[in-house]
Amino acid sequence: MIADLLTAVLVLAGLVFFAAGTLGLLRFPDVYTRLHALTKADNLGLGLVVLGLMPQADGPAMILKLVLIWVLVLAAGATAAHMVAQRTWTHGEFERRE
């Protein structure tokens, strides 16, 4: 029972961070700030969600897999953010023509 309560709280907290990240993506003026919003908020949000799911996991293997997922998302997120930032810095803003 406690585990379910803990999961609900942590996952909800995670969602708050995801919402913040999405809000940042929509509101921030340029690429670099949006990158911050995405990588920082979402990763943290995901961390909380992973934490929330841990009580539900049925064995240490599942927990380790969840942590591995989180680590991979972190690495991928960081690399992607760096790449996008560098390209924008060298090639200028990818202007939007609607």
């Binding site: 991979l72 991928a76 960081a78 690399t79 790449m83 390209r87």
Partner: peptide, 17 residues
């Protein structure tokens, strides 16, 4: 290849996984 050590480093990490 994007300049900078980040991509090669990330690749070195991600490939084995």
């Amino acid at each position: 290849p994007a300049p900078g050590p980040v991509l090669p480093g990330a690749v070195r990490l991600l490939l084995p996984v």
